[in-house]
Design a protein around this nucleic acid. Structure first.
Lengths: 260, 260
DNA sequence: GTAAAATATCTTGTATACTAGTTATACAAA
DNA sequence: TTTGTATAACTAGTATACAAGATATTTTAC
C-alpha cells in the first residue's frame, strides 16, 4: 500500500521524517510480552470460564453495563472481551439488541469431537515415535497425580491435570501449536462435558485410560497408543439425547449460523 | 451470577421492572443475521486479505490512524479489526508502541500443515463413505472449472475454486464446521503458499491431483482417496530453506510466542 | 566530536459521549 | 378483553477526547 516505511531511502533528509514507525518486531525483543495485564484479557478469561463452567447458562444475557460496573472499568475493554467470545461462538451478539451466551450447537459438537480425535491421533502417534525419556517420566508423573486427585475427589484440580496430560502428549510430539488448536476446539466441547461430568467413578476411569495410553507410548507401539487414545476420547460421545431432556434449551439442533 | 433476568418471578409488580433483557436468542429468529454491515468487519476482511496476499508484507507496520483516514471512520472499528487479526496471530500488537504484520513462524507453519492433513484426512474418508451422487457431481464440476481456469491462467479465480473443492469435500462428509477450522489454519499457511505459488504448471498439477482424489472417492476406495489427498497436501511441504534466502526477514524461526 | 539526558511526538489503551436501532411497556381504540 | 400504536428505555455501534508509555529527535554537557 502507500505505507512504505523502510522501503524509502530515509537517510537523505533527516529532520523531516514524521517518525514513521520503523521499528518492526525484532526477533529478540524485550517488550515482546505484549498483552500481559490488559483489562480486556481479564474480563475475557473470567467470562469464558463462567461460560465453560455453565455458571453463565446458555441463553443467559450478558450486559456490558453490568460487567462494566462489576469490574469498575469502561465499556471499551468489556466490549473487546465480548467480541473475542463472539468470535469463538461462545456468545451471540445481536447488534442493537443484546448479547447472550450461545446455546450448545450439537452439530458443531459432533464435529468438534471428530476434529479433536483427528488431531490427538496425530499427536499421540508422533509422541510415540519420538518422545524422550524425560517426557515420558513427566507424563507418568501427571498420571500419578491424577490418581491421587481422583482419590481425593478434587474435581477441579483433576480437570487441570487431565488437560496437562493431553497437552504433555502434544508437547512430546513436538506439536505445541496443535495443542493450542485442540484447546480452542475443546472450549466448545467443554460446556457439554461439564454437564455430563458428574458421573460416579469417571475420574478413576480416566486415570486408567490415560495410563493405558501411556503404557502403549512407552512400549513404542503407535497403533496401540492411538487405539487407546481413541477409546478414551470416544467416551465423550455419550448420547446427547438424554441430556437434551434434562436441559432442553441449552442445546441448539438446527444449524443457523450467525456469521457467514 | 447476579443477573437473574427470567428466573425471578417478574409477574407480581408490573410497572417497576427496569426492562431486564428477557429476550434470549430464540431459535427461529429473523434478525439472526447479526453482523452484516459492520465497519469493523469490512476493515478486518480487507486487512486480512492484504496480509494473506502479502500485499502487506511480514514486518510492515499497521497504523490505526492511516486505516482510519483511508476508510473515513473512527478508531474504534479499526481497533476491533486489528484485535481480531492479533488473535489470529496475523499481526503483533506492541502495547504502547505499534502494530506490525507478524512474520511467518515456521514452526507453527509445520504444525499447521500437519493439522490440516489430519483434518482433511478425516473429511475425505468420511466423504468417500457417504457422499451423495449430487455432491460428487458438484465436485466434478468444480474440478472441471479448475481445469478451465488453469488454462486461462486466472490465478485468483483458481484459488477460489481450489478452496471450493476442499470445502466441498468437507461438506460432502457432513463436516462443514471442520472446514471452518481448516480455513482458520489455512490463514497461517496461505501467506507462505502465496510466496511459493507462482510456479509454472502448478495449477495444472493441482487439477490432476484433485481429479485423482475425486476418482478415488467415486470408486468408494477410502484408503486411496486419503492417499491421494495426502499426496496432494504434501506438496505444501516444499523445503522452506529456499524461500528463506529469497525473503530472509519474512520468516521467524525461534518460537517466542507473544501471548501465553 | 561523542555520549547522555531531555524533550517532542508518535503509538496504543481507556473512558465517555453520542447515534441508531430494538424491545418492552403503556395506552388507546375496538 | 383484545389488538394496534405510540412512547420510553435500553441495547450495541461509533466517534472522540484523554492518559500512559515508547521511540526518535534534539539538546546539552564534556
Amino acid at each position: 500500500m502507500d505505507v512504505s516505511p523502510d522501503n524509502m531511502p530515509d537517510n537523505d533528509v533527516k529532520t523531516r521524517k514524521p517518525r514513521a514507525p520503523n521499528s518492526p518486531p525484532i526477533s529478540g525483543r524485550a517488550t515482546a510480552t505484549g498483552r500481559a495485564a490488559r483489562n480486556s484479557e481479564i474480563v475475557y478469561r473470567d467470562l469464558r470460564d463462567d461460560i465453560m463452567n455453565v455458571a453463565l447458562a446458555p441463553g443467559a444475557p450478558i450486559l456490558e453495563k453490568e460487567v462494566t460496573e462489576r469490574y469498575g472499568i469502561s465499556r471499551t475493554p468489556v466490549r473487546e472481551a465480548i467480541l473475542r467470545l463472539a468470535e469463538e461462538r461462545l456468545v451471540n451478539v445481536f447488534p442493537k439488541s443484546g448479547t447472550f451466551v450461545s446455546r450448545i450447537p450439537v452439530s458443531e459438537l459432533r464435529e468438534a469431537i471428530v476434529a479433536r480425535k483427528a488431531l490427538e491421533e496425530v499427536c499421540v502417534r508422533e509422541a510415540t515415535a519420538k518422545a524422550s525419556k524425560s517426557r515420558l517420566m513427566e507424563l507418568r508423573a501427571i498420571v500419578q497425580r491424577e490418581q491421587e486427585l481422583a482419590e481425593n475427589g478434587d474435581e477441579h484440580a483433576f480437570h487441570d491435570a487431565d488437560n496437562a496430560f493431553h497437552s504433555g502428549i502434544a508437547a512430546a510430539a513436538g506439536y505445541p501449536g496443535i495443542w493450542t488448536m485442540i484447546e480452542k476446539i475443546r472450549i466448545q466441547v467443554e460446556r457439554y462435558r461439564r454437564l455430563t461430568l458428574p458421573q460416579k467413578g469417571r475420574m478413576q476411569l480416566v486415570v486408567s485410560e490415560h495410563s493405558a495410553v501411556l503404557d502403549a507410548i512407552e512400549t513404542g507401539d503407535g497403533d496401540a497408543a492411538v487405539a487407546a487414545m481413541m477409546s478414551h476420547l470416544n467416551k465423550l460421545q455419550i448420547d446427547i439425547g438424554t441430556f437434551q431432556e434434562l436441559w432442553p434449551d441449552y442445546f441448539l439442533f438446527d444449524e443457523q449460523r450467525t456469521q457467514p
